[in-house]
């Protein structure tokens, strides 16, 4: 074993010596190319089924719009809930704070997959109880996309409550007093003074949450197969006995989507923080 270690060490020395004139970016590029070649080899080894991809790829990819729609809907709902959750947790009212604390604690304390299945399967059961008013049947029975938005929105809203709370608390107490001293009500102060400043703090982490949600949205595939991206991949993969091809395709798409949104999220974050630096650095 020691001999192998020594050999490896010598190889490493030689590689390092030989490439010392090479810029780091080029080295990095070579590593990436190596990984790509390895992956392609793996695909050949698995005898990646191109014909299957041609036939079923479009169906699987057809889940992308719904995955995106679910995530945009989910993050919108999550932001609304997080806003109320944060205001509730910071509120002087026992009712508001109690409800907000329960919401955050309960949702964070239960698995997302349970919440999804609960909303999709358990609520309809409630609607059909003999003692339930019939209108529940129109309220508690959701199309899967709607159930998905609800579940992801409620779940992420609870986590994002802390993000929103931090954003709101980042606004100095002196400003709030100044607003009050000028005759502004609590609501006016929140709307006109606190939230516009909190947004700066809130937006970048919210972008991260959206990216995480993109991946978590795959859990919807467990409740309803054949609808969004992962559900379709899972469905066809198992049905056609090509799980490797189907899941690899889905994984690639998630990776591509998260990479694209990460790119925009970074840019947004930089722009916001640059604005901050410029403004803060300009004083005196």
């Amino acid at each position: 074993m020691a001999g192998v270690g020594a050999t490896m060490g010598r190889v490493r020395d030689r590689v390092e010596a030989g490439s010392s004139g090479m810029p780091f970016r080029v080295k990095l590029g070579l590593v990436y190319t190596g990984i790509a070649i390895l992956l392609i080899l793996v695909f050949f080894w698995f005898q990646f089924d191109i014909a299957f991809m041609r036939e079923w790829g479009p169906f699987i990819l057809g889940g992308i719009p719904l995955t995106l729609a679910i995530c945009f809907g989910g993050i919108a709902l999550a932001m609304v809930l997080a806003l109320f959750g944060a205001l509730g947790r910071l509120s002087k009212s026992a009712v508001a704070r109690g409800i907000a604390n329960f919401y955050v604690s309960f949702v964070r304390g239960t698995p997302l997959v349970v919440q999804i299945l609960f909303i999709y399967f358990a609520l309809p059961q409630l609607a059909f109880k003999p003692s339930s008013p019939t209108f529940l049947q129109t309220i508690f029975i959701f199309p899967v996309a709607f159930a998905a938005i609800l579940a992801l929105g409620i779940n992420y809203g609870a986590y994002m409550t802390e993000i929103f709370r931090a954003g709101i608390q980042a606004v100095g107490g002196g400003q709030i007093e100044a607003a009050h001293a000028l005759g502004m009500t609590d609501a006016q102060t929140t709307r006109r003074v606190v939230l516009p400043q909190a947004v700066r703090v809130i937006i970048p982490p919210t972008g991260n949450e959206f990216i995480a949600m993109l991946k978590d949205s795959a859990l919807i595939g467990i409740a309803a197969s054949g609808v969004e991206l992962f559900g379709r991949a899972q469905n066809t993969g198992l049905g056609q006995n090509r799980p490797f091809e189907a899941l690899a395709l889905a994984a690639m798409v998630y990776w591509l989507l998260t990479s694209i949104f990460s790119f925009f999220q970074k840019r947004l974050e930089n722009r916001i923080s640059r604005g901050h630096v410029r403004i803060e650095g300009g004083g005196h």
Partner: peptide, 28 residues
């Protein structure tokens, strides 16, 4: 009753004139 604080407490997201007209517009 107008109040002036030791550490100013201006609204940093608003320009000077916007700081001035915020309360008259929102409150009055």
């Amino acid at each position: 009753a107008g109040m002036v604080f030791q550490d100013f407490n201006l609204f940093p997201h608003l320009s000077v004139i916007e700081n001035l007209i915020e309360a008259p517009c929102v409150v009055k």
